[in-house]
């Protein structure tokens, strides 16, 4: 059961953290139509997170709720990929401020959606029937997210000289973070052993194919990877997640007995 909980929290935290990031565009997008599109992506992700947290709450029992899991866990208890907590801009320290960069948003959504389109499909066969049902619902959503981000990746890559340079820089910045996908965490290993989870490394060749085809169409170079491999899914995060959670959790924590 603990194997299931840790694994579900990993999936849920991924969805919540990226949903929180995508919602930052609401009211600030490059064109009104895109504000609406990214809000839809965010709503899908928050919806996935809620279903997964609810499932965890049921497994944990007691007075656990989706909001306790989202609002009252500490940074090191979050199990999302580090990639997803990064702000929408290039490399800067946690407390440094910069503008929202659409290229960064698109590249991140693309890299993650390409993985989840494969992972949710595989999880439709999970031994946990509730997770399998969530996977079936999420698969439809992520296929659209992949389409949206892929189309934009191609437009930005094969657009103007400026957009090409910018989105290549975003890719160079973010691509190394995808190494974390392929290093199995203890929670993943336990979930695979229990038949609940999927061995992500088996999806790697398909992910490479999706990514390489899109990058070729976008006239972008796949960056070389190596060096530090992030460990967000083991609770060791970047400086950025603390700020994201401090903001997200502030109101709920200021009123621990509040009802909303």
């Amino acid at each position: 059961m603990s194997a299931a909980i840790d694994y579900l929290l990993h999936l849920a935290d991924n969805a919540l953290v990226l949903g929180q990031r995508n919602a930052e565009w609401c009211g600030h997008g490059p064109i009104l139509e895109e504000d609406i599109a990214l809000s839809n992506v965010s709503l899908d992700l928050i919806g996935q997170a809620r279903l997964l947290y609810q499932l965890v709450a049921t497994l944990k029992g007691g007075d656990c709720t989706e909001d306790k899991l989202a609002y009252f866990r500490e940074t090191h208890e979050f199990r999302n990929y580090t990639l997803l907590e990064l702000p929408h801009h290039g490399p800067l320290s946690g407390y440094a401020q910069s503008d929202l960069d659409y290229g960064t948003t698109i590249v991140r959504n693309f890299l993650y959606s390409a993985l989840m389109a494969l992972l949710w499909e595989a999880l439709e066969k999970s031994a946990n029937a509730d997770l399998a049902a969530i996977a079936a619902k999420s698969l439809k959503e992520v296929r659209y997210h992949l389409r949206h981000s892929r189309d934009w990746l191609v437009r930005l890559g094969d657009g103007t000289d400026e957009s090409h340079a910018r989105v290549q820089a975003s890719l160079d910045h973010l691509f190394p973070y995808t190494q974390e996908f392929w290093v199995q965490s203890p929670a993943e290993a336990a979930a695979i052993a229990a038949g609940i989870g999927v061995d992500v490394t088996t999806l790697r060749a398909d992910w490479d194919a999706i990514v390489d085809a899109a990058l070729a169409e976008a006239t972008l170079q796949r960056p070389a990877v190596g060096g530090y491999v992030t460990e967000g899914k083991r609770g060791i995060h970047s400086e950025h997640l603390g700020f994201l959670l401090a903001e997200m959790q502030s109101l709920a924590r200021a009123h621990p007995n509040g009802v909303w």
Binding site: G27, S39, I46, G47, R50, E247, M248, L251, A252, W260
Partner: peptide
Amino acid sequence: WISRAPSLKRKAILIAKVQDEGG
């Protein structure tokens, strides 16, 4: 207030609402 909505349900409602304004 989207980033600070005090529950996930209210967060989703607020995003959908602000998105509607854009629409």
